[in-house]
Write a protein that binds this DNA or RNA. Structure first.
Lengths: 203, 203
DNA sequence: TCGTTACGATAACGATCGGTATGGAATTGG
DNA sequence: CCAATTCCATACCGATCGTTATCGTAACGA
């Protein structure tokens, strides 16, 4: 009894998910959502509840649809291959779609609405500037012999900032200082040695 | 001629910076800013311009005031000590103030307004759940001998997720796939070996 | 065919957003 | 002491936010 829904719920959810992926939670307005889904506002409310519920549904769908490499990775036979599968899967996902860079779970609150774009760009620029300083410093280090000739300073700088930003996210999630310090120590444990200067175990 | 300003601009800027640190750019409303600074809205506009200009000033102040370990690190004699100083400085900053966890530059757009808190918490929980899965997987790996007895599965899981999230941030900043892959490879280069199983160079 | 049901579309709700016009008070230079 | 100037405070601006009431109508079971 009663009329049936005209739009496909799954299709609409996919479209909504892509909006959240691109603009984040607060950055995605209902104007964006209705435009992307082709579904009017009250119909979205009827089908999904409020905005938060819609976002949670979209997040769940993201996990099962795009984070499928996570259970794949966990099924790998060795820990190293688990890590490798995870890292490569993340690289792939982060760069597969040119207009959905990064990961919904992070962009979800790292991205913002459209008119916050200049601010976001300023932050990105500041980041890039810091990373460039690091890269130049590592270039000098290689020239001075305390990095091996084969070391890639751009990779080292990118790796370091990746760990730094990952730690910042973790701190926001409530990680203890000890845990963060252990993460930092592990990151250091991979530091290349073998230049003309001896490896340096200090602090 | 004319009356002088009653409030101290630097003090107000510090207070505003702390608000942005906690709530992000869009999450910080003028209601928050006036409450924190004790300065009325028109006075903030007169002193700093609009919200974006105020944020940029706050960001600059954050760099010179709290990211002072960055030039310190760059002045270290070896690349490894540069990295160490940077990592430890970041750990310190991220955990020094209980109510300003993380880094302004990342929270700046990773945090949001107060009523987005449940969504943020859902994301944090999802992240923690994934990390717990990783930790359990590494526990099993140690039991099976493909991780050394001394390996700390919690640290490995935290390190991996830190790199993953750092890469996601970098992808949002426009990093190339090759660069991200190089970062991933470097992160893998530090993977502990020495369990009963041989090290596994695959994939 | 008829009554019921739930649809889709429009428009409006109160609240809050960033940003400003308006006065009255206060402090300055002359 | 006066006039000019700049302050602070209140109140309001239009726009947009998430959310919902209203309403005509299309699709169902009987």
């Amino acid at each position: 009894m009663g009329r049936h829904r005209e739009f496909d719920v799954d299709t609409a959810l996919d479209a909504a998910m892509r909006v959240f992926w691109r603009k984040g939670y607060e950055g995605a307005s209902y104007a964006d959502l209705t435009a992307a889904t082709g579904v009017e506002r009250p119909a979205l409310y009827a089908a999904f509840g409020n905005k938060e519920a819609l976002f949670r549904r979209a997040l769940a769908r993201y996990y099962e649809r795009y984070l499928d490499y996570l259970p794949e990775a966990l099924a790998q036979p060795t820990a190293r291959r688990v890590a490798a599968h995870l890292l490569h899967g993340a690289v792939d996902l982060n760069t597969r779609y040119p207009d959905h860079t990064g990961c919904l779970g992070i962009n979800g609150v790292l991205a913002g609405s459209d008119d916050a774009e200049p601010v976001r760009q300023a932050l990105i620029d500041a980041r890039a500037a810091g990373e460039a300083l690091l890269r130049e410093r590592f270039d000098r280090a290689r020239a001075e012999g305390d990095l091996p000739e084969t070391a890639r300073s751009d990779v080292l700088a990118a790796f370091l900032t990746a760990v730094l930003h990952g730690m910042a996210v973790q701190a926001k999630a409530g990680f203890s200082r000890d845990m963060l310090m252990a993460v930092a120590e592990h990151a250091l444990s991979t530091w290349p040695t073998g230049g003309s200067a001896p490896s340096d175990p200090a602090s």
